[in-house]
Design a protein around this nucleic acid. Structure first.
Lengths: 351, 351
DNA sequence: CATGCCTTTGGAAGTGCTTCCACAAGATGC
DNA sequence: GCATCTTGTGGAAGCACTTCCAAAGGCATG
């Protein structure tokens, strides 16, 4: 049971260590008989290669690390599922670095950057610190960004502007003229982009954008993509009284949950009194019948790995930015699925 | 930028490689001056140790792997968060193996078992295959089980029997005499144990246990711990007509979501017409105002790592089984928080 | 039958570290 | 002043593999 090395196999099978290695790695030029004999001995001795000796000698690690913030966020989980599935098909190891605060980005990145430690990095959702960019570039470590973008690296992301545009347009087409937005903190790129999309949609429908109709809760964990922030923002809207918008685009489903709670507590019903469209399509959204913009999270994970592997095998490959378009999932929170209540645009939508 | 080894440092600093290694590892007996000089050179050359060379020479990997099923289940995510936080404090690497089907258990376990690959394993929620137990024991690889139990290994789990007992008792104390149970598949140990707890509670309150009042949906993904299964099971109950129980213990929150949906679609209101208590306290439960049994998931993760590290440093340590007691979180789905409607037991509970 | 080529093989060198052993030099004791 | 101990240090050996090079053997060709 102790440790069996290729030397033991070589001795036992009466061959050289080179031959053993060749057999074990399915290399060329070994006669079928020798191959068979070596394999048999290896099995009999219950040989296990020593991973780190291999990695040292081969000068590659067969591992990929993922640097992820906000671990418990459903979005990451779902993407990670895709990552994990694809990665284990390919036989790589996945090592996970969870980031809880900004300092950890550097700590973990440095750790991943240790010479030879990983073959590639998946970097999620955070802004890349400038000094890190430089280090990464000369470390020549393949890296792909997921849910964030930088000109220097491959990226997989979602068309936030477009998605927000579609969500807002949906609300406008249902006949609403006053559409508010519950947003997350603007330090987050997705939040910024979704705001842009919202604004574009308004303007291309001939409605003036008004800052007063965009609110952000003060709860700032997960950059404001949390339930409490949604709750707080909606409370502010409710304080506006009768002038408050009757339709809202909310920058994430989880915030929408909070917003709906605030609404309900004030006696306002969704969708009868207020229409809501979210963003993400987390599992919760299905249960709550929330209309939302779906991001193809699982596929993003799969693609991220494929892109990373491609880059690893060809470092000179041109940098590729892939953007997925979110799709509108119409459920009940926007009123589109209910009887039309004299809104012509609904009818035409239902065809 | 290329590779700097300890030989480069040794040459540059005019010392031997042994000394360099000693400095880098904070070993004893190096004069302060030498130490300082070596450190300086190392910094100047931007030295990075080669992880795998270290691991090979030290004969330990400083990595822990987690073997986890049903990745997208909220329970695991939350536990994993605890695991991840503690692990990165300790400076270990976390490598993740997601199991999607039974075969993968062996594949991944074998991979983790590769000689020297990991220092310890966290094994989640699944029954350990017998033949694996033997292999693990003579591989002498430290392993701790989370959310599952075996006499041969340390484990961290939740008192399912006790929890189910408390949940059911809560319902009984609210005055219900006929309490049904929506369960998951009995292949799952938690499901079995929760059934026991339910039964005990009934019997110690003088109520006869009846098989007809326990139903399991046919949807068997995640061993029946899924929304559809809860929906199906509740549909069956509803078919009973007026005889159906008006209170249910459901073996997981996610099933409770399905059950509530089935109820609502049949015009039955929760908690006015039917009382529900779940199990887990996933995030969704809070949003849905579901009364449930909370498992301390994050802490379980933290403890799992601590236990594992303890075992790694002392393999002879006695095997320890830690069981957390779930706590009852009373929200609105059981009717306990509403006006008492002439139920004396409620009053006494409210004190 | 000699020559050349291809296939198969053994094992040295290499991967970059840790650790152990031996030795030098200075400190201490008598 | 000599023996003994201590402290700091260099570098060989070891960790378990891959890979390269040279050599041996087999075969066909003219």
């Amino acid at each position: 049971m102790a440790k069996v090395t290729i030397y033991d196999i070589a001795r036992e099978a009466g061959v050289g260590i080179g031959t053993v290695s060749r057999v074990l790695n399915n290399h060329t030029s070994v006669t079928p008989e020798t191959r068979k004999r070596v394999k048999e001995v290896a099995r009999r001795l219950n040989y296990q290669p020593h991973t780190y000796a291999q990695r040292l000698a081969r000068r590659q690690s067969e591992t990929i690390s993922a640097i992820i913030p906000f671990f418990t966020n459903y979005f990451f989980i779902e993407v990670l599922q895709g990552v994990q599935d694809r990665i284990s098909q390919l036989g790589y190891d996945l090592v996970l670095y969870g980031v809880n605060n900004v300092d950890q980005v550097e700590t973990h990145l440095s750790r991943a950057l240790q010479r030879g430690k990983v073959d590639g990095i998946l970097f999620f959702s955070m802004k890349l610190p400038e000094k890190i960019v430089a280090r990464l570039r000369d470390a020549k470590l393949p890296m792909v960004l997921v849910d964030t973008v930088s000109p220097d690296f491959d990226s997989i992301s979602v068309a936030n502007v477009e998605g927000a545009y579609a969500a807002t347009t949906h609300l406008l087409e249902l006949g609403h003229r006053s559409v508010g937005m519950v947003n997350a903190q603007l330090v987050s790129t997705p939040a910024l982009e979704r705001l842009q999309g919202y604004r574009h949609a308004l303007e291309s429908h001939g409605i003036t954008y008004s800052e007063g109709l965009v609110k952000t809760g003060s709860s700032n964990k997960q950059d404001g993509f949390n339930r409490e922030a949604g709750y707080e923002a909606m409370e502010e809207f409710i304080e506006m009284g009768p002038d408050m918008p009757r339709a809202f685009f909310v920058s994430s489903d989880i915030q929408a949950m909070g917003a709906i709670a605030a609404l309900t507590e004030s006696g306002l019903r969704v969708p009868e009194d207020v229409a809501i469209v979210g963003f993400d399509d987390i599992e919760l959204a299905r249960h709550m019948r929330l209309t939302t913009m779906r991001q193809p999270m699982y596929q993003m994970g799969v693609l991220a790995i494929e892109r990373l592997v491609a880059r690893m095998s060809n470092p000179e490959m041109e940098i590729l930015h892939t953007t997925f378009s979110p799709t509108l999932i119409v459920r009940e929170s926007c009123g589109a699925l209910r009887s039309s209540e004299g809104m012509p645009s609904v009818k035409s939508k239902q065809r």
